[in-house]
């Protein structure tokens, strides 16, 4: 059903845009443009849904259907909230992956350093001890 809705929406998107948009609609349009610039394919559907809802809201507002327009605005805003959260979550996951990688590298480096320290300590233990001059016996 979502697919059918989006397909019809895509067909309708080619039609002329509403002539007047309110300040709320402008804010939503800017949010849509900003989130689309992120080029995250996972949120394309939500952005498309927000666009259609925004168009419906404008249409309804123009035709005097205030309550219906308000519902459409709220649907557009909720869609954009979801898209923004997903984008932010994707950023967080990428940061987590990078940090996980750093942590693994640190673990590996730590292991190497620990081995080197153990080897150096063993080598020092096996070095022949230098006899202090005071302990040397007279010839």
């Amino acid at each position: 059903m979502v697919v059918v809705g989006l397909a019809l929406g895509a067909f309708a998107a080619g039609q002329p845009a509403p002539s007047r948009t309110g300040e709320r609609a402008l804010v939503l349009q800017r949010r849509i443009a900003s989130l689309r610039a992120e080029q995250n394919a996972q949120v394309d559907g939500r952005l498309r849904q927000a666009e259609l809802a925004l168009q419906a809201a404008s249409t309804r507002q123009e035709s005097g259907e205030r309550e219906a327009g308000e519902r459409a605005y709220r649907i557009a805003e909720a869609s954009l909230d979801i898209a923004a959260s997903r984008i932010e979550n994707a950023r967080l996951r990428a940061a987590i992956v990078a940090l996980e990688r750093d942590r693994i590298q640190l673990e590996e480096q730590q292991s190497v350093v620990d081995s080197a320290i153990a080897a150096a300590e063993r080598a020092l233990q096996h070095e022949p001890r230098e006899v202090p001059r005071s302990e040397r016996s007279a010839p």
Binding site: G5, Q15, L52, Q55, A56, A72
Partner: peptide
């Protein structure tokens, strides 16, 4: 608003009902 757009918006807003 033409008929197609109204139908599309109706499907989009009410999807998953």
């Amino acid at each position: 608003m033409n008929f197609c757009l109204r139908i599309a918006l109706a499907f989009t807003l009410a999807c998953g009902g």
